[in-house]
Design a binder for these strands. Structure first.
Lengths: 225, 225, 225, 225
DNA sequence: GATGAATGAGAGTTCATTCAT
DNA sequence: CATGAATGAACTCTCATTCAT
């Protein structure tokens, strides 16, 4: 019984956050109406305040949930046994897709920090998400595939910055996912690789970039092994 | 007489836009109060409406002016006789500095597009600004320093995306301009370079990374020669 | 419980309409302040908007209610068994009294039509009210007491036009109900009568002009008989 | 020179009143914008205040001018030598036409009385206009064509009331002048006539209903003779 | 006299939040 | 726990009027 009760509450909380996410995404923070959120969640306006103190904290909960889900999704998208390069590509794919789908929430994220006294650090949930990239990269550095001299945060800026800007451009033009953005980005990341030479005489009709990278990795593996 | 009158009006318009820019930057679009803008511009509330139809159009004027000034500033920041690499660095420096100073206005820019019927293209003023980068790069391609196979827009996404994301990170951490971001970005852009060396006789006033790049170039020159 | 709740809402709505009617009557449409209406209805300003979308629709509700009540009152004022002449007099009495009491609302009525797309027909509530007169007159025509050759709408114009103009004159002079206006109007309406006498057996409670008319009628009866 | 100056001022004043009349008629008192009036009169906003203290007094001047012009027009419309009946018809024609053309100004007239301390008498200009009707009627009474027992003001109420109500109905239905309204009204006025015939030798240019009335008169003449 | 830029009080309306039921 | 009617502070925008030029 009490389990049922608790489950019902949690389901409601979830429904509320989903509704709020949609409304915030459609109308922006200030454009979002508590009444509209309540209507979509099929609850009374006053009920929202039983779950969240006010609009600001509802926004924070929405943003928090968004990035948690994003992290969960990113981890699920990675091949556990995949190479560093493959995982980077998977993450890039996932990230670009997510940005295109939920661009408004990403933009709104900064509004969730607006608390008195907060001297302005990033939200912990975002830090968590960003760590997915860092983990992959650090694995690459550990495997001596990436040069340890370039700070991780700079690579991060290139990785996320490029994807975010590409997504903004695509969304603005009402376009969808564009694989060449990913290919281009990954080719660029080769720049950060160690000076270990690339294999010579590779086929020039490379499809996706993955094949080429995979071959390079297998080559490196043999070499280092 | 009429000159004095016209000048006074233009000065007022300028004062108004400066005040509005500041308030929008501090409080965001919805947080900005027309009363506060009027107070800062030292005019009556109603006077704003003599210059701009409503809040939305005031915002559009602010954003328009911001990007126009940004373009003007960018062009002024470039050494007319500088090499492609040097101009890229100058633009990157200028852009990162500007973003750090006026991050809020950049974020707010998207709000200026919210007009009925606009199916979502970028603001023309931004396009103008972006063309500064394109012009430099196309000059590079024309000089066969940059590979023409990579679409310009993809390079653009890396350039602006990385700088924007870096700026956001820096601003969030209450940090200021960080030259290593620029260095890193330019090193990356070497990836797009052809092996053909840049033409000789370029200005020698390049610093830090510029020196490194110059050395690389000279090295390549010897090699190819 | 829910009955109590619903009743309270309806009572509030009624209180609001009464207050709005008074303020509109005193100050005119544009002179009426929503704040004043709220104050009189003893509710918050915002509460008005729970019941009516905006000032215009509040005005429409006020006007609608006014004419509905007027029609209800007119029907109640008529003797069900009364002769055509008597009912005409009763209606004229009622109408003149009502006009004197609520002249401002009648004047304001035209403002309630101001809707986009409405190419300008009369409000349906007024049509309903006017039908009270038409019904009496058509009964008279059916009984062959009134000449069918004169269009009903022309008689209506004389009836309502005279009463309205008289009311305006009286109100302007700060005077009250004047029975001679009615007597005069009814004498005039004899002009539209056929020489055929009204059916016998009508109520004998007719006063003043009614007596005169009755005598005329009886006289005509003898003549025609 | 000073004559030219004075004439220019008077022409301006006239232009201003014409513009103001149009705007008041189109938009109502509160809907009329001083800026729009100035624009139509092709003068600056501030200039209005050189001629009229404020909006209210401008309205009063507009209404005053309207009724003066109406009286002037009415007198011009009457055949100096016409019979009482003919003049009544001419006045009715003129009045109905004027009402249809300038209904809004008539409605607005009441707003010109709104002065503090005015206990509510009619505007003197309207009284003047109404006297045109009274003069005709009193001439009829003097000629013993109309019964002196019915107060003039009651006949006035029927005359103006019917025409005003008819005009309102016509205007509301986007219809134009309807001669049957006049015919009907004049037939009705026969009710007020004495059996004493009108004096002979009147102009024979009467048409439609006039012919009918003339025939009735001649008939009565024979009878009484 | 004529101008029109500037004023600023005041209006209608919105909506996050509360609390009696 | 849930409701949703009620609140009222706060907003943007209007426009009659003024006054320096």
């Amino acid at each position: 019984m009490s389990t049922t009760q608790r489950q019902r509450l949690e389901a409601r909380e979830e429904t509320l956050l989903v509704a709020a996410t949609a409304v915030f995404a459609e109308s922006g923070v200030d454009g979002a109406r508590m009444a509209e959120i309540a209507r979509r969640a099929d609850i009374a306006e006053g009920t929202i305040y039983l779950y969240h103190k006010n609009k600001q904290e509802l926004l924070e909960a929405v943003v928090d949930r968004f990035w948690r889900e994003l992290t969960r999704g990113a981890l699920a998208a990675l091949s556990p046994q995949g190479s560093v390069t493959q995982q980077l590509k998977e993450l890039a794919d996932y990230h670009l897709h997510s940005l295109i789908d939920d661009f408004k929430i990403v933009e709104i994220t900064s509004r969730a920090r607006e608390r008195q006294g907060e001297t302005g650090r990033q939200l912990p949930q975002i830090r968590e998400y960003v760590r997915v990239f860092d983990a992959i990269l650090e694995r690459g550095i550990g495997l001596q595939q990436f040069d340890a001299s370039t700070p991780v945060w700079q690579m991060r800026d290139v990785f996320y910055g490029t994807l975010e800007h590409s997504a903004r451009t695509l969304v603005l033009r009402n376009q969808t996912f564009d694989a060449t953005v990913i290919d281009n980005l990954l080719l660029l990341f080769e720049r950060f690789r160690q000076t270990t030479p690339e294999v010579a005489g590779q086929t020039k009709t490379e499809t996706s970039i993955m094949d080429a990278l995979a071959r390079i990795e297998s080559h490196l593996t043999k070499k280092s092994g």
